[in-house]
Design a protein around this nucleic acid. Structure first.
Lengths: 354, 354
DNA sequence: TTGAAAGCGGTACCAA
DNA sequence: TTGGTACCGCTTTCAA
C-alpha cells in the first residue's frame, strides 16, 4: 500500500489539511511543523500529493495537449511537425507545463475517446482536417484551444495562429508562372479523404475539404488564373499522406505522359522532395527538366535546393502554446497571422524550349 | 456550469451508476436505456466522464511519460531523440495511450515537481544522466519505468532497453586505430556537469558520471589501450551540450595546436557534425585531413558521409514503451540489449603522412 | 496556526 | 438490469 497524505498526517499527529498545506501553501504553517511533516513523509516514502487527486480537486491539470490528425509517429517524421512541436515545447517549458501528445489516427470512436480522456487544460490543434468532431469534443469539455488551420466557420473569438495559406501559395505559383510554365501539376496531401494516389479530377478547388490544402491549392490556382490557365488545365495529383514515398508514388507515371507537366507545385516540402526523388531516380538522359516547388521550408529543403515558401514553424508552435497558456485579454490579439516568404532556390527554372 | 454525470442521471431519471455504466460498461444495461442516456447527454452537452475523476477512481491514467534530461525543445532538435520519440509514439499509439513529455531542464525543485505531478502510469526515462533523484521520485510514486541508460546500480528487475555502449564505442575506435591514428581527441557531451567547453584533463574515464558518456569514452579508450595509447595520451574534449554549435565551439582551437589530433571520436553524430562544420569552415588550403566519427547514425550522418555506429533508434523507443505498457512476465526479458553496427563512410581515412 | 467537514466527478461492489 | 453506498486522495473554506 502506497502511503497517502492521510498516513503522513497520522504519523505526525496533525490533520490532512495541515499536511496538504505543508506541500501547497508553506506560508500557512510554521516552518518547524512543516519540516516535521516533510521529514515524516520522506521517512514513510510518501511521494507528495497524488497528481490526479490534486487535479480533480483543483480543477486543472498542468499540462496541455497537442492534437495530431495523423499518427503519432508521423508527428516525429514530418520535419515541419517536429519544428512546430519544438516551439510548443519551448513555451510549455517556460510555463512549467508538460505536453501531452494525443494521436487521432485510429478509427473515430477510439480517437474520440482519446480526446475525451486526455487529462489536459487545453489543446493546441495541429492541422486538424475535417475533424470538426474533435473541436466539438474540446468545446463540450469546456477546454480552451488554439487552432493552426483556419476554418471558414471559426468564431471570431477562436484563438488561432497560422499563415495566409492562399496568399503564400499564390506567391510561389506566381513565381513559377512567371518562369513561363503553363503545363503544371499541383500535388497535395489528402485532397479528398481516401482518394487514391495519383491524378484526380475535381471540378473545382472548393471541393477540397481540408482547409490548409484548400487554401494552398486555391492560391496556386489564383496565380495561374492570372496568366490565363484555368483550373481545368491544371493537373491535380493526390498523395494519400504527407510523405516522400506517397509523393513519389503519386507522381510516378506523370512524366511519361504525352504532355508531361513542366512544373510541379507541391503542398509541402516533404511532397516536393518526393517528386525530386522520382526525378533523381530516372537515368540522367531521360530526366525531364521539371521545376518543383515545396511549402514550409523545412531544413532539408535548403540542401535540396528547393524553391519553397518559408513559414516560421517553431514560432507557430510557440505562439500556439503561448496563446493557450497566457491568453491575451484582447480577443483580436488571439488571432495571429504569421509572415511567410518566397524562397527561390535551384529547383525552379524557366520552361525548357521543346 | 458544465454538466456532470449526475446531471445526466437526473435528466434521465436513473442513478449515477447507470449513467457511468452507459459509458464504461455498455453490457451492464439495456441498449435502449443506454441510448436514452447517451441521447440526454448529447442534449445536455455532457462530454463524457471527466478524465481526471475517472483516473482517480480507476487508479490509472492512460498515458505514459517520457522524461528528458534536457530542454523539451532539445528533444525535438536532436535527431536521435526525435527518432526515439517516434518509436515510443508508435507503441503508445498501438496501445491507445497518449504520451506526456516531461521536461527536466529547470532547477531541481521545479523539475522534481514536474515528475511528481505528471499524470502518467509510468515513465520512459530517456537519457537521464545523474538525475538519480528523478528515478527516486518515480519509485516513490510506485510507478513502473524503463530506462535507456544503463546504470551500475540498476537492479536486475529494472526494465531497460539499450545497447552495449562500451563495446559499440570500441568498435568504431578500433576502426580508427586500425587506420593508424594515434593522436586522437575524444569529444563528448557533459563529460562533467558544468565543465567548460574545450579540452578537459581527467585522470581517468571513471570520473565521468553520465553512464552513457562514460560507456562510450571507456570503449574509445579500450580500443586505443589495445594499440598502446593510454588514457593520458588521448585528448578529452568537453561539449557543454549535445549540439553542433557546442561541438564546434569545443574543438575550435584544437586543430591549431602544435600537434593537432589526426582523428576526433565524437560521442554522438550531432557532435561529429559540429566538428565537420568547423573543418569545412576553414579555407581549403588550411584544412587538416582529420578523421571524424560519430555515434547513433542519424539521418544526417549518411549525407555527411560520417563514419559512425548505428543503433536502432525507433526500435529503442518502441521497445521502451512496449516494456512499459506490456511488461514481460519473465524479468530477464525486461532487459533488452539492442544490436549496433559500425558504419564506415568517408569521414575516416588513413593517417596522412606528415 | 491548525482542524473539521464538505466536496471535486466518478467507479465498483453488492444488494435488490 | 438497476440503484445504493462507499470511497479514490486531495484541497479548501471556515471556524476554532
Amino acid at each position: 500500500m502506497k502511503p497517502t497524505l492521510q498516513a503522513v498526517a497520522d504519523a505526525v499527529g496533525v490533520s490532512r489539511s495541515t499536511v496538504s498545506n505543508a506541500y501547497s501553501r508553506p506560508d500557512q504553517l510554521s516552518a518547524a511543523l512543516r519540516e516535521r511533516i516533510l521529514g515524516a513523509a520522506r521517512q514513510l516514502g510518501y511521494p507528495g500529493p497524488n497528481p490526479t487527486a490534486r487535479s480533480l480537486r483543483r480543477g486543472f491539470v498542468g499540462s496541455i495537449g497537442v492534437l495530431f490528425t495523423s499518427q503519432l509517429s508521423y508527428a516525429f517524421t514530418d520535419p515541419f511537425a517536429v519544428r512546430f512541436l519544438a516551439g510548443v515545447g519551448e513555451a510549455a517549458e517556460r510555463h512549467g507545463t508538460s505536453m501531452l501528445l494525443v494521436p487521432l489516427s485510429r478509427a473515430e470512436p477510439d480517437a474520440r475517446r482519446a480526446v475525451e480522456n486526455a487529462a489536459v487544460d487545453g489543446f493546441c490543434v495541429y492541422c486538424v482536417a475535417d475533424e470538426e468532431w474533435a473541436l466539438e469534443v474540446i468545446r463540450a469539455r469546456g477546454l480552451p484551444y488554439v487552432s493552426t488551420a483556419a476554418r471558414d466557420d471559426a468564431g471570431l473569438d477562436e484563438r488561432f495562429v497560422g499563415i495566409d495559406e492562399r496568399a503564400a501559395a499564390r506567391s510561389v505559383a506566381t513565381h513559377v508562372a512567371g518562369l513561363g510554365h503553363r503545363r503544371v501539376a499541383l500535388l497535395a496531401d489528402s485532397v479528398l479523404p481516401d482518394a487514391p494516389a495519383g491524378p484526380l479530377a475535381l471540378s473545382g478547388v472548393d471541393q477540397v475539404p481540408h482547409p490548409t490544402t484548400h487554401g494552398r491549392l486555391a492560391g496556386f490556382a489564383d496565380a495561374f488564373a492570372d496568366v490565363g490557365v484555368g483550373w481545368a488545365e491544371l493537373t491535380l495529383v493526390n498523395a494519400p499522406d504527407n510523405s516522400r514515398q506517397a509523393a513519389a508514388a503519386a507522381v510516378a507515371g506523370l512524366f511519361d505522359r504525352p504532355t508531361p507537366p513542366t512544373a510541379v507545385l507541391a503542398g509541402s516540402d516533404v511532397l516536393a522532395l518526393g517528386v525530386l526523388d522520382v526525378l533523381a531516380e530516372r537515368p540522367a538522359g531521360n530526366r525531364p527538366p521539371v521545376s518543383v516547388t515545396g511549402f514550409d521550408d523545412v531544413p532539408e529543403a535548403a540542401s535540396a535546393g528547393l524553391t519553397t515558401v518559408r513559414q516560421p514553424a517553431e514560432e507557430k508552435g510557440r505562439i500556439a502554446a503561448e496563446l493557450l497558456l497566457d491568453p491575451p485579454a484582447d480577443a483580436a490579439a488571439g488571432h495571429v497571422l504569421l509572415p511567410t516568404a518566397l524562397v527561390v532556390r535551384t529547383s525552379t527554372g524557366p520552361v525548357p524550349r521543346s
